[in-house]
């Protein structure tokens, strides 16, 4: 066995812990480095932003938060920026969480965005005065119920069927915002931010049955899976993973965690591609050496 073969063997059998360690070092270094990267906007993300941005004040956006803390890093930025866009523009929000861990995610997002809306801010050259966003007037959080398919179908008849009371136990009819609101007919669009297969229920049982405009925000892992629904027109907009969240933040001129995370993504991807190339060189050279030695 020659020296080259030894090097390639070593490349092939490198302890995976070195890869993890290097990846963590690169991610931490990139996280602290003071620079930003350009983010290109894709049409499917822009369509969600434009749809919400052109809604008349007082319209209702239905936000389905179906994720747990495991997907928080990717999906929370989407929820934050979308909620802030709605509240700044006086668009009302009805929210459900059809994942058992979803209510705490939704509540956390509402608390933080309500706080953020108290401060004056300027987006796209337009100043938005800080205001008190009130639970029951500006938004209604219905909470969690199991079996997403049945809940989605039930809400198509009346929100009160699966949710006689909101997450905080108040009867729906006693909530000012819900007066005269029966079902999806009064909702401008549904945005499902999801880290679960619940998204499929929203597409088929929700959009398929009731025909409302549906947009999705999903985790990176689910990213490639739902593009066909965009092509078929079953969803009108789509945000996939941290990139989708960063694009929405850029569109809203409300840079947050997703934009910061994209610079980490860049260097982490470079490192992973580097390791893939090294691994492939090692694999092919090792194969070539063995062939040359007649083994």
């Amino acid at each position: 066995m020659n020296q080259n073969t030894n090097i390639f063997n070593k490349m092939m059998s490198m302890d995976r812990r070195w890869v993890f360690l290097l990846l963590i070092i690169v991610c931490v270094a990139a996280y602290f480095a003071p620079f930003s990267i350009p983010i290109l906007i894709e049409p499917e993300v822009e369509r969600v932003y434009n749809f919400v941005d052109t809604l008349a004040p007082g319209s209702i956006v239905f936000l389905a938060i179906d994720y747990d803390p495991a997907s928080l890093a990717e999906l929370h930025p989407m929820t934050y920026v979308l909620l802030e866009q709605c509240f700044r523009r006086n668009i009302r929000v009805i929210c459900t969480a059809l994942h058992p861990n979803g209510p705490s995610m939704a509540e956390n997002a509402f608390l933080e965005v309500v706080d953020s809306c108290k401060v004056d801010k300027t987006y796209h050259g337009k100043q938005f005065m800080g205001r008190e966003v009130v639970n029951g007037i500006d938004y209604c959080f219905l909470g969690y119920k199991p079996y997403p398919a049945l809940v989605i179908l039930g809400m198509g008849t009346n929100f009160r069927l699966p949710f006689p009371a909101d997450y905080y136990g108040r009867p729906i009819d006693s909530i000012p915002m819900m007066k005269g609101i029966q079902n999806y007919d009064q909702v401008a669009c549904v945005v499902n931010i999801s880290g679960t297969s619940g998204t499929e229920y929203w597409i088929s049982y929700g959009q398929g049955r009731f025909g409302f405009p549906l947009a999705l925000g999903v985790t990176g892992v689910m990213g490639a899976e739902y593009y066909p629904y965009l092509n078929s027109g079953q969803i009108f907009g789509y945000m996939a993973g941290m990139l989708g969240a960063a694009q929405y933040e850029k569109l809203a001129e409300n840079d947050g965690k997703a934009v910061v995370a994209m610079k980490v993504q860049l260097f982490a991807h470079f490192l992973i591609i580097f390791f893939i190339i090294i691994g492939n060189i090692g694999f092919f050279m090792d194969k070539f050496s063995k062939k040359r030695e007649g083994r």
Binding site: Y31, T219, G223, G241, A261, H269
Partner: peptide
């Protein structure tokens, strides 16, 4: 491959979340 790329992005996002 496209799915794998998105998965890598997803996993790095989770790491960024924990680093944050």
């Amino acid at each position: 491959g496209a799915s794998f790329g998105y998965t890598v992005m997803g996993r790095i996002s989770l790491l960024v979340g924990r680093i944050t």
